[in-house]
Structures are given as C-alpha cells and as structure tokens.
Amino acid sequence: MTTILQKMACKIRQDIIEMLVLAKSGHPGGSLSAADIMSVLYFSVLKIEPDNPQWPDRDRFVLSKGHAAPVLYAALAERGFFPREELVNLRQTGHFLQGHPDMLKVPGVDMSTGSLGQGFSAAAGMALAGKIDQKTYRVYCLLGDGEIAEGLVWEAAMAAAHYKLDNLVAVLDYNGLQIDGTNEEVMNSAPLADKWRAFGWNVLEVDGHDVEELLNSLELAKNFQGKPTIIVAKTTKGKGVSFMENQAGWHGSAPSPEQAELALAELKGGNAHV
C-alpha cells in the first residue's frame, strides 16, 4: 500500500508541474509539499465515490489553503472525479479549473476556498452538521502554516473544540515557508503543537512525506473521541523538485518550460521520493 501511495504522490507532483507550466501561473511550492498528504487521503483514507461526488454520506475534504488547488485537482483527476485531460486547462478562461477551488464547478470539491482561514471555519460547520444529523462521515481539512496567522482559524479552532468535533481532522502542511520568507521571519507561529493543544485539540506530529506515518496518524485521528484532531505534518515546500525545495520564491510562480522539463525529469527519474 505504501508503495502505491508514494507512487501516486509522485504522479500528483508530475501533474502539478504539467498544469502550472501550461497555466503560466499558480502555486507550486505549497502544492508539492502536500502531495503525499493528498495521496494518502484520496487513495486510502477518504470514504468517497468518484462517480457520485455528491454522495450524502461521503467524507468531506476542504482545501482551506485554496491556492494549493493544483494538488487537489491532480488528486481528484487521478482518483477519477473528472478526466485527467482537463488538468491542462487550469486557470484558462472558459474552463472549469479555477485558480482556487470552486465547488460549483469542480466535481469532488466540497467547499469553495481561496480566502485563507475560511475553509477551516466551513469545515467545522460541516462537522457540526454531521454531528447533529448523527452521520458517520468525517470532515478533513488541509491548512497551511502561513494561513494559521488568520484570526478566523483560531475562532474556528475554539468552536471545534467547544463542540467536541471529533469527526473533524485538520492536517497542517507545515512547510515553514510563506510568501515573504520563513514563518519565523514573517509571523512566528511556534510553538505550534502547544498552541493547538491549548485550544483543546488532539495533536499528532508526523513527517508529512512519510505515507506510513500519515496513514497511522489518520487512523489514530479516526478513533480519537471527544476532541478534534490536528495532524501537524512537517513538510518541505517544493518537495520533489530539487531547485524548488525550501525556496520561498516558488510559493507563487510557475516554472518555465525548461524548468518544468528538469522538474519532470527529476520526478520521473525517481529522485523525488520513490
């Protein structure tokens, strides 16, 4: 299983590069950092039916860091929610893959996002609705580490703990970088795990590129009762493409065709992860 998930993560990374080079814009760094997390979620953890994206009892996934749309689109396409051929139309006028996820346009997108913090708040609302309806579905939400500077994140974190939303699982893509530099330089969020614990969350810390650790932590989260869980997944921004790794500059700029070729060669050559 782990090999399959690693391979899928590598595939998702290739999709990301192929999408962004054609779109000539977009966010590679924070998409690549989350590829393993998304592979594990979409190919092992989430209870979903690609042929029936509105299945009422499905698990929900909310990409609160909406700018990482390419990693979500790649995962959805690879999982069969829509044809892979659509990926090349990312950010093109007249096509449905918007720069940030639009639930009204893209099958499998459970919440429109793009303004940081909001997806997390909506995810908590979905989890609360699931509770009062005694549904068994779970709500998963991917947060960025820069994103958690938004005050709304902490309003929602407080509410999720208050309402004991143990059907809500947040995964924090802790890649340490944001647009203007490192988290430490821009807005220091440390000590991260302590903050979430203090807000009443069950906190797990994992290597966000280790699919086995991710699988195990998501399994633990599933069985944890009485509190929402956050998995602080330590990642590398730009993971899998050597010249993008740990470079804040790759937050929001697309590779040139030459750079994309290099990146794809690395990913296909297996230097990335597998």
Partner: peptide, 8 residues
C-alpha cells in the same frame, strides 16, 4: 463560516 458549513 460555520453557517456556510451547515448550508453545505
């Protein structure tokens, strides 16, 4: 945000 989640 919570209201939006309920509506979804």
């Amino acid at each position: 945000g919570t209201g939006a989640g309920f509506a979804v």
